[in-house]
Write a protein that binds this DNA or RNA. Structure first.
Length: 210
DNA sequence: CTCCCGATAT
DNA sequence: ATATCAGGAG
């Protein structure tokens, strides 16, 4: 089984366990952008707890600029790096209003110009927000599982993404990321992977070796 | 490579 | 008390 066949089989099996959907709650691209900025180094579940209240108070980019920065900080206080993230969200709101007429950009190039947005965040917005497959979301789970699957040895996230883009069929890019993220959180954990109960343990090159 | 930083599990 | 979680900027 080569890498491409391996990926197809992995997707087929993981689909029986999880929905290939992002775990973040949102109702439009702007909310998705805010949620994704908040999700850096933070679990999606915690982000959802915060955004449930946040999105009732703040609807549009303008709403984030109406209140003092300190107020926004308090509203996201239970999130990691809340000061940096509050500042980035406000700066994004400002730029999106001034440069993009209030609409979140739908291209990689423009998204990467936003503060607090690198390829991971941009790929989430493009795939989950706009249904575009410009790249593959590579977070810590996709990074770790790709290496355990021997799909790439790249340490550099951007280069790892390039490797994956050559192996995974384009129409599956989004599914690949979200299925691996779910499996990484539940079974193929960073520290103590549950290989004994993993649906992939008969084909995984790293099964049972630690 | 350092800084940003809180919640939850153990 | 300490480990774990899990991106981006400078």
């Amino acid at each position: 089984m080569d890498k491409k066949e391996f990926v197809i089989e992995v997707l087929k099996r993981l689909r029986t366990l999880y929905e290939p959907k992002i775990a973040l709650n949102f109702s439009n691209p702007w909310e998705l952008l805010v949620a994704t900025i908040l999700s850096a180094q933070t679990t999606d579940e915690r982000v959802n707890m915060v955004t449930e209240k946040l999105f009732k108070k703040y609807k549009t980019p303008e709403d984030y600029l109406k209140v003092p920065l300190e107020e926004l900080e308090q509203d996201i206080k239970s999130i990691n790096y809340y000061r940096t993230k509050a500042k980035n969200i406000r700066a994004c709101a400002q730029i999106i209003l001034e440069k993009y007429g209030g609409k979140v950009p739908d291209t990689m190039e423009e998204l990467l110009k936003l503060p607090g947005v690198a390829r991971k965040t941009a790929n989430v917005v493009l795939s989950a927000g706009y249904g575009k497959n410009e790249g593959i979301v590579v977070d810590t789970h996709v990074d770790r599982l790709s290496k355990r699957f021997n799909l790439s040895k790249e340490k550099n996230r951007d280069k790892l993404e390039q490797d994956l883009m050559k192996i995974v069929p384009r129409e599956e890019w989004a599914n690949f990321s979200y299925l691996l993220i779910h499996h990484g959180r539940n079974v193929c954990k960073a520290k103590n992977p549950k290989c004994d109960e993993c649906i992939l343990n008969d084909i995984c090159p790293s099964a049972f070796i630690k």
